[in-house]
Amino acid sequence: MKKKRVQEKTIRPPEIKYTHISIIFGLLIFTCILMSVITDNFFSTKNLTGMTRNFMETALLALPMTFIILTNSIDLSVSGTVAMCAIFLAKINLVTGNIVLAIAITVITGILAGALNGVVVGYIKIPSFIATLATMFMYGGIAQGVSQAETLTGLPKTFYILGSGYFLGLPIQLWIFAVAAILFSFVLRRTEYGRNLRVIGFNPESAVYAGINVAKVHLINYVVSGAMAALAALIFVSRISAAKSNAGVGYETDAIIAVVLGGTSISGGYGTVEGTILGILLVGILRNGLTLARVSSEITTIILGMLLLLTIIISGNTGGGVIKKHKKEK
C-alpha cells in the first residue's frame, strides 16, 4: 500500500460524495424521461421557460444555502427575508415613486437581515435552526405588518423586464443564476474561503486552531444569503408584477431539499455547488412536471418531503441528530 505509486490525476478529493452524486444524476435522468412520457409538452420551449422562471428564486437561495449547510448551519429565514424585501420594494416605490431608491433599500434590507442572522449565529452562538426560525417569522411578520396582508402593486413597467425578459433567447433570471452558480462553485472549489467553509463544517474547533475566524465566515455566509434573498425578491416581484407578504413561503424548504438532494451533508463538510444544481433541477422538474401531469401540488409536497427524509436516511451522513450534538460537549 505504502509503496504503490498512484497517479495524481486519478485521485479524487475526499470531500465529495461521488456515489451520491451519481445516484442523484440517475434519478434526474429518470425523472426527465418519466416526465416526457407522462406529459405531452414537457420538453416544449414554452414549458421549459416557464419552469425556469418559476423556480429560479428558489435556485438562487439554494446557492448560499449550500455554503451555510456546509458549515453545519441552516438558514430558515430566507423565506421571511424574501417577503420582507418584496414588500419593502413595493411599498417604498409606492411612497416615493423612485424605483432605484426602492431597489437600493431592498438590497440593504436583505443584507441587514442576513447580518442579524450572522451575528446571532456566528458571534452569539445561538443554534442556527432556532435563531433563523425566529428571524424567519420576524421578517415575514414585518412584511405582514407593513403590508397589512394586502397585495401591493404599482411598479414601473420597465422593472418587469427582470422577471419576464429574455437575453439571447433565455429568461434573464436564468442568466443571473448561471453567473451566480459559476461564482459560488469557483469560490467553493478554488478559494481559501471555500476551504474554510469545509473545515468549519467538519470541525469548527480545528478551524479556530488554524487561525480561521469562524464567526466572520458565518456572518459573511448569512449576509450573502440575505443579499441573494433580496435579489430573489426583486425577481419575484418583477415576475408576478406585485408584492405579497406571503411571497417566498416554502422557499426555504425547497432550497434545503435541493441542497440535501445534491449531496451536501446536513452535518457539514461534504458537498458541492454542482450537486446543489442537480438538486435544484430535480426539485424544479418534479414540481413543474407533476403539475403538468395534473398531479395535485399536495402530492408533490408529500413526495418532496419524503425525498428529503429518504436522502438523509440513505446517504447516512447525518451527524446522528440529537445524540451527536451532546458528544461535542466537554
Partner: peptide, 19 residues
C-alpha cells in the same frame, strides 16, 4: 479534536493555516 481535520486530505490539512 483541533490539531487536524480528520475528514480532510493530507494536502488540505497541511496548507490550511498558511493558505
Amino acid at each position: 479534536r483541533n490539531g487536524v481535520t480528520l475528514p480532510m486530505s493530507i494536502k488540505d490539512n497541511i496548507t490550511l493555516a498558511m493558505l
